[in-house]
Design a protein around this nucleic acid. Structure first.
Lengths: 346, 346
DNA sequence: CTGAAAGCGCTTACAG
DNA sequence: CTGAAAGCGCTTACAG
């Protein structure tokens, strides 16, 4: 990064311009501490003095430098949020909820996307720690969070959300993924389906493998065999989903229903199913906008991203306010929303 | 907010625990400056000394406090993003693009939602300024940005995006809203429509009034009268859109086409149109996921939120790297995407 | 009611 | 190659 420009007088142009409390004190003819009192609304200043200080503040365009304040005070009143992709609707709802709660506690929010890259997650998280955020809300992507141990020991609160921490014991707020999938798959079985496909995200992602587990358990409980050709885990890129689903549909013994492992898979699958001649039942994991307007409308197992974010952030601030006790794990239930696509009977 | 807990020894529990460079120096038996050199990878340290310092760092779990560093250096390597709603897909795409560019310049991102409340915009923006962000990217909602003048004078770069600044001269990256609407409305006229409705956001929002202007200009240019009953500006809450559109459709002389002023209006309108017995043409402002899967698929005038964010942030960093010159205004073109709903002829 | 001194944890500018 | 002193802009603890 470029350094700030300096002018010929050798003073930093950009930041040297900024008046400080010392400048205000000099102009108002008072001590530094008096300015500090006025700026922070502390009592014990004559109305007359206060007036003089305020005039100096206005004249100079002074604004307190919170970086300096933070250094002295300890608390930064900021929270870091690390997630997979700020641009994804699921995470943006979650983010907004985190923001609202943090705001209620007077905290500002740093956000960053890990892009499902463990190294990037770590880099971001530690950068937030270096800024001394009071706490972290993390949608983790890495397999080892021991890198956070010194930070946590030093007092940075952290709550994991959507997925649990790996190799450390930490607060986590999750959806009961396996349970939610069980409900969705059982629903398909209830409609008479026997050959049910499952297309999910990369198996190394905790939620993805949990959801797969829910699928397998439900099939097994119903005494239905699972042909491994019906199961596909990997990238949620549309091309891959298209290819896999097409393969399953073109089989001489095609699947008659699909459970899709997240909203990206659902959207990609919809494009294939719309083009398909044979009706195929679909239940998707995660709700999405307009699901009710498609034909057929899409049956989903919905998570509540805002609630995940809100719950996690409340937990974070409880910790910051001194709540001790062992790490907590909160599980939220998914909710089956019946709309049509999941009720296409076999 | 609660103050950090203090223990009975009177030391700050949370932050007192944190080792500093001084602690590292003491443990390694070197001077403070040597630690600083090692931490920052500066040259001129014996491998042996470096080794000793590194051991001390690891043993103590030291991480440089960037708040302190920032105070001394001037630059904070952070950017503040203020927008309407982090949870809205349009803005979350924009945010992600801002994040990517900022990351490329080594900057962290503060984000905050104004919720279309001018006071909240100002509060957030000035809070970011107090943290001494290097620059601001703002989707403005207030009618007067003179509150930013001292900050800008003091060197905080700022770029407005999606909507221009009011009452100050500042860099802005916008979509040519009126132009894009003209294209969409002309398209409807081309399909034979004469009674075309326009439902938009609150008229005090710049983009909303610009889009309305585009509608009126196109109708006028085509020599078509506009019945004021066809025009409705206000909240984009689904209930209001439902009521207004229903009113227009139930009229003895109903509208035969609708231009919807943004994605929230489009979504709300779709629910009404789906239930309508008579086919009504629709062109929406802003593209949205799955628009192509609805029946009919939805014709839109698309903006590129990621490009808006990227362009604005690039401009911001150009300024931070010393580009002077008068405020710039960049206008991006909208793009008509023909999918079906806009081609329902009269 | 008011203010001078010390210190938060770093970097800068300088000297050895 | 190494380090002591001063300072970034505030707040804290204390004295008057």
């Amino acid at each position: 990064m470029a350094e700030p420009a300096h002018n010929s007088r050798g003073a930093a142009q950009r930041y040297g311009a900024r008046p400080t409390m010392k400048d205000v004190a000099a102009r108002a003819g008072v001590g530094l501490k008096t300015v500090s009192r006025v700026v922070n609304g502390e009592p014990g200043v004559t109305p007359d003095t206060m007036q003089r200080v305020q005039s100096a503040i206005d004249a100079l365009g002074f604004r307190r430098n919170d970086s300096a304040r933070i250094l002295r005070k300890g608390r930064t009143s900021s929270v870091g949020l690390v997630l997979e992709d700020l641009g994804d609707p699921f995470y943006s709802s979650l983010s907004r909820a985190v923001e609202e709660v943090a705001r209620g506690y007077g905290s500002l929010l740093f956000t960053g996307s890990s892009d499902e890259d463990p190294e990037r997650e770590q880099e971001l998280t530690l950068a937030f720690c270096a800024r001394r955020v009071d706490g972290l809300v993390i949608v983790p992507t890495s397999f080892d969070h021991r890198y956070l141990e010194p930070e946590i020991a030093a007092g940075i609160a952290s709550v994991f959300v959507d997925r649990p921490a790996e190799r450390i014991d930490a607060d986590a707020v999750l959806t009961d993924n396996a349970g939610a999938v069980r409900e969705g798959v059982a629903h398909l079985i209830g409609q008479g389906h026997r050959r049910i496909a499952f297309i999910g995200d990369q198996p190394r992602i905790h939620t993805a493998s949990e959801r797969l587990r829910g699928y397998r358990e439900t099939m097994a409980a119903a005494g239905l065999p699972v042909d491994e050709a019906w199961v596909s885990m990997g990238s949620t890129a549309p091309e891959r989903v298209h290819a896999e689903l097409s393969r399953m549909l073109d089989d001489p013994q095609p699947v008659t229903a699909l459970f899709s492992g997240n909203n990206r898979v659902t959207v990609a699958a919809l494009r294939v199913l719309t083009a398909s001649s044979r009706p195929v039942a679909l239940v998707g994991f995660d709700d999405f906008e307009l699901a009710d307007l498609l034909s057929p409308a899409v049956t989903v197992v919905a998570q509540d991203p805002a609630r995940l974010g809100r719950t996690a952030t409340e937990l974070l601030f409880n910790r910051l306010e001194g709540e001790t006790g062992p790490p907590r794990r909160v599980e939220l239930r998914g909710r089956l929303i019946v709309r049509g696509s999941g009720e296409i009977a076999f």
